[in-house]
């Protein structure tokens, strides 16, 4: 039984005191890829923001890497070993690809050099672009950069928000295996928010379906794939 990296129990989270997510309980173990599915406004991004500490939970227990995130500054949570690739990618547009990556590195000199190599290995398409300003990259290249940067710190927990957003399917297909590789090779726990159910379930081990802020369904990806119709209904508000 591998270590539980993310342990959320009965979480209510939202903005200005108004909960967007209610009574949510999810978990992610080491080496797992877990998909967080659901329609727009279901509360997926809110959940991720709470996990990384940017939003404070209204109630409930949220433990990341063994410690709570309630009342903890997001930068501290990040330094524990969590990487959050946000929906808007949060790239530094004025800095070059190399500089963006550099900011993601952790550890001493050797470790950082090694991590940089690994990141570029994972996304070889970035190698010729290292000196280009991030703002000038194409959508796919930007997403790759965001992922590479998130991985540059060798995180133990990776949160990815809408990786496929605005990307051509072929590019997404190329990036998905990398997610699987990370989980398998490094033992990181990965929580992916996705609207593309099929794509997400193709690499995920398990999945949760959120609807209207509450957990509508959960199960292994095999279970969810076979219950496709139920998943769709939850998207359209049936459940």
């Amino acid at each position: 039984m591998s270590e539980t990296l993310i342990d959320v129990h009965d979480l209510s989270a939202g903005y200005g005191g108004i909960p967007v997510v209610r009574n949510l309980s999810i978990s992610v173990r080491a080496g797992e890829v877990v998909a967080l599915l659901g329609p727009n406004g279901a509360g997926k991004t809110t959940t991720l923001l709470t996990l990384s500490g940017i939003l404070q939970p209204i109630s409930g227990r949220v433990d990341v890497l063994g410690e709570t995130v309630s009342g903890v500054k997001p930068e501290k949570v990040a330094r524990r070993g969590l990487s959050h690739v946000a929906e808007d990618r949060s790239l530094f547009f004025d800095l070059s690809v190399k500089e963006n990556l550099r900011l993601g590195l952790r550890g001493d000199r050797n470790e950082r050099a090694a991590s940089m190599e690994v990141a570029l290995d994972l996304f070889p398409a970035l190698a010729p672009l290292v000196d280009r300003r991030a703002g000038l990259l194409s959508g796919g290249e930007q997403q790759m950069l965001a992922m590479a940067r998130g991985l540059a710190s060798r995180p133990r927990v990776l949160l990815v928000d809408e990786m496929s957003l605005g990307l051509a399917p072929i590019i997404v297909e190329r990036m998905l295996p990398i997610v699987r590789r990370i989980a398998d090779e490094t033992g990181a726990g990965i929580l992916m928010v996705e609207q593309h159910v099929g794509l997400a379930l193709s690499v995920a081990d398990r999945g949760y379906v959120l609807a209207h802020g509450e957990l509508a369904m959960e199960g292994t990806s095999a279970e969810l794939r076979s219950n496709r119709r139920l998943v769709e209904e939850s998207y359209l508000g049936g459940i």
Binding site: S52, I54, K73, P74, E75, A78, R79, S83, H84, A86, S90, L91, F92, F93, D94, L95, E99, N100, R102, L103, G104, R106, R149, S153
Partner: peptide
Amino acid sequence: TRFGLATRAAAGNEKGAVLLGYSP
């Protein structure tokens, strides 16, 4: 320097810097 880079980063996108573990 990393400090300088981080400053420029946080100036451009504070959330991004925070998510990478830098304290603005």
